[in-house]
């Protein structure tokens, strides 16, 4: 069976006509299966934002192919609309685009543009709002009276109302306070587990990548420098550092212990795992 989405030797240049074009993305191949929760990490300018735009057809690669369920998205018969309906893109600070007087109206905006019947619009909007943690009592509230974290979730509901099978989010937790951050990431986890929505999240937080994603993609200078199970990727400390990245804080603690001669494994992803590993060594 073919993958949900696949990139084959994809490159992209913002100045392809130049004598020596600079490549924002260079020769990236990867495939995404339905149901995955993936974190995309990489320093500023490493090509993450360019890469994610291939997935919903906002950008077409200069070279290479993008395949949706095995179909080349540049083939004649392929409709970009199909791709956009299946893959929802949530930009940074999406709450800046809220504008309606009530939450329900705001989330209806997308389905309305799909020209769905009014009942269907509302049904979808309500479902999406509930998916991100709102209750019926909230539907008529103004989105502007919400806290930062809840505003952000309302904006995400706007994308979910299009019923995408995959959600791509550019730093979804940026600027949120610790509680808002945890709530949002737990909400995405629930969406992934219960609704089987495929998630690809761009993040600068190694801790969030470690705790929530099953797979990590790392970019450096337009290239995909790591792609694998989260734990696997975070064992490559030196390579990550060379790419301007890091490992999660709990792993840093374990590395500092190892440097002091304590025989611990250093591949813990969360505080709980680090605690258990330390206790294992100390209770021998």
């Amino acid at each position: 069976m073919s993958a949900f989405l696949e990139l084959k030797n994809v490159s992209y240049s913002y100045d392809p006509q130049a004598k020596e074009p600079r490549w924002a993305v260079k020769d990236v191949s990867l495939s995404i299966e339905e149901g995955e929760f993936i974190a995309l990490i990489g320093h500023t300018g490493s090509g993450k934002s360019t890469l994610i735009q291939f997935f919903d057809g906002l950008l077409a690669p200069t070279e290479g192919q993008v395949l949706f369920q095995g179909q080349d998205t540049r083939e004649k018969g392929f409709s970009m609309k199909t791709l956009r309906q299946n893959v929802g893109l949530v930009f940074q600070y999406p709450e800046h685009q809220l504008f309606e007087m009530t939450l329900l109206k705001d989330v209806c905006y997308g389905p309305k543009n799909l020209k769905l019947p009014k009942e269907e619009q509302e049904a979808r909007a309500k479902e999406a709002l509930q998916l991100v943690g709102f209750t019926e009592n909230d539907f008529d509230r103004s989105p502007f009276d919400l806290s930062g974290g809840r505003k952000r979730r309302a904006a995400i509901a706007g994308v979910l109302a299009m019923k995408p099978r995959m959600l791509i989010l550019d730093e979804p937790a940026a600027g949120l306070d610790p509680k808002g951050r945890t709530d949002l990431l737990e909400m995405l986890t629930k969406l992934n587990r219960e609704n089987h929505t495929t998630i690809l999240m761009v993040t600068h937080s190694m801790e969030d990548a470690a705790r929530y994603a099953g797979r990590v993609l790392a970019m450096n200078k337009g290239k995909l420098v790591a792609d694998g199970p989260t734990r696997e990727v975070f064992t490559h400390f030196d390579e990550l550092q060379e790419s301007g990245l890091s490992v999660p804080e709990p792993a840093i603690a374990l590395r500092a212990m190892k440097e002091r001669g304590i025989p611990v494994r250093t591949d813990a992803l969360t505080t709980e795992e680090a605690r258990d590993e330390i206790l294992r060594v100390f209770q021998k």
Binding site: P178, G180, P248, E249, P250, A253, I278, L279
Partner: peptide, 19 residues
């Protein structure tokens, strides 16, 4: 609505476990 630095969090957990 706040939290602790990761190192403090880990230290607390270890202390609770008896270290």
């Amino acid at each position: 609505g706040l939290t602790l630095p990761d190192a403090t969090l880990l230290a607390n957990e270890l202390r609770e476990a008896g270290l």
